[in-house]
Simulated scan of single mutants.
Amino acid sequence: MANFTMSGFLLMGFSDKVELEILLAFLFLVLYMVALTGNIFIITAISMYSSLHSPMYFFLKHLSFLDLCYISVTVPRAIYTSFMHSGYISLGECIVQCFAFVLCACAELSILTVMSYDRYVAICFPLRYDIIMDASKCVHGVLGAWIGGIISGLMHTTATFSMHFCGSHVIHQFFCDIPQLLKLSCSNEYIREVGVTVFLSLVTLFCVTIIGQSYLKIFSTVLRMP
């Protein structure tokens, strides 16, 4: 079978019907512009007003920036594909899209974990909050989220595109989705990607557990207040 990793892939649009595909593309465009405007407004407001220069809003600003990047990785390309009726995506663009998608997803989960810890300290230890959540810890938390996202993106992207893709080069998704790419791989070449997925799933479970425990302790503390 031919190896299509040297040329590119063919992305499927939102629908097989042209009229429905254009309608959905317009809907996604409107929603994308609303999300873009909202996140830019949050980032601008937090940056401009000194009263919002606190750890909570510092993390919120970075979360909004990650949301902006997250939706910009896939949605504009999908809208372009629908309007131009051309789903071809080059290998390089597909690699960048996969890397950026995983990076933003993992970094956003890390930021949410740090934010849950910030709220836990603020409510459960209010007198020590300024000491525990100082500026250096906030910066380290954001840097850790970005570094973790970059490492996760590199692991997933390297494991995925080290495989050979045999047969059809059609991806049944509107972006380069890793599970869909695995379906195009030759037999027994996806073991490395499965190992990376299992490892990152455990990390995700760890983050979700921390978030859950933080908010459980917050609710418990609030309910005990007279």
Rank of each mutant, 00 (worst) to 15 (best):
F4T: 09
S7Q: 11
L10M: 15
F14R: 00
F14G: 01
L20K: 12
E21K: 13
I22T: 14
L23Q: 04
L24C: 06
F28I: 03
V30W: 03
V30F: 12
V34D: 02
A35L: 13
N39L: 04
I40D: 00
F41Q: 08
I43G: 08
T44Q: 04
T44S: 06
T44I: 13
L52Q: 09
P55F: 08
L60P: 00
L60S: 12
H62M: 10
L63R: 03
S64E: 00
F65R: 02
L66T: 03
L68M: 11
I71Y: 12
T74W: 14
P76K: 06
P76E: 08
P76W: 09
M84Q: 08
L91G: 13
C94W: 05
I95Y: 07
V96P: 00
V96S: 05
Q97R: 07
C104V: 10
A105I: 06
L112Y: 07
V114H: 11
M115E: 01
D118R: 00
D118K: 02
R119Q: 12
Y120F: 15
A122P: 00
I123E: 10
P126I: 09
L127M: 11
I132E: 05
I132P: 00
L143N: 11
G153H: 06
A159T: 04
T160W: 04
F175M: 10
I178G: 06
L181R: 10
N188Q: 08
V194E: 07
V194F: 03
F199M: 14
F206D: 05
I211H: 04
G212W: 10
Q213W: 14
S214A: 15
K217C: 10
R224E: 06
